[in-house]
Amino acid sequence: MLTTAFALVFFYAPVDADQGIIQKIFYVHVPLAIVALCGFVAGGIFGLMHLRTRDRRWDMRSYVTIHLSIVLAVGVLITGSIWARASWGQWFVWDEPMLVVFLIVFLLYATYQPLRFSIEDPEKQSRYASVFAITAGAFVPLCFGAVRMAEGLTHPQAATMTTSGPASVSQTFLISLIGMALLFVTLCKYEMASKNATFKLRALRRRLAGEDDDFAAPVARSAAPQL
């Protein structure tokens, strides 16, 4: 899916008149950003589910979505600054609220892992991480909503760009977005499966090690939740 999207990006969508080939990065940058932000919000919702149900699988879901969203957010910042460098001549533009807010959100989420890691009790870790996920998850739409209201002009809006441009732009953009979302979901599933497998393996190994399974060598403390 994503390959199709990229093929379309290069061969189907028209080259922007005043930005040239570099404008193509738009098809990566914007879907990445949208998916990352949705991932943060989803992480908050999963966190809420965790607090409500006390089921640690929700915490795992929250952790995985936020973890991957952080990775995507790094991608957003990198592609964004390449694009900004090419079209505005600067790596970063301060008078652009969209950028600044994204940077703030990224900085906030960058503390997610250290926060988890520095709480020793695993159960407290999950609960505190969920509280963080909810707070930050509410912070994200709040800030972007505020920015939307006090709109800056330099940042090309995905909506205006897709509706005002030729149809091929909006089609390619949509396909990129869907592709990115699917990629994200697949990655989440994959990481979840791998984590589950690790825990099952560990449990089996403990059982093999003998009846006194509770006193098997303690696992190294980790920021990742444990099932």
Binding site: I104, V105, A110, T111, L115, I119, Y128, F132, F139
Partner: peptide
Amino acid sequence: ALAIQTRARDLMVALLALPLLVP
């Protein structure tokens, strides 16, 4: 309250509170 249970309390407070307080 979030940071009090962590080991690096002072650092966590600053890292968590500053972005949230930007608005």
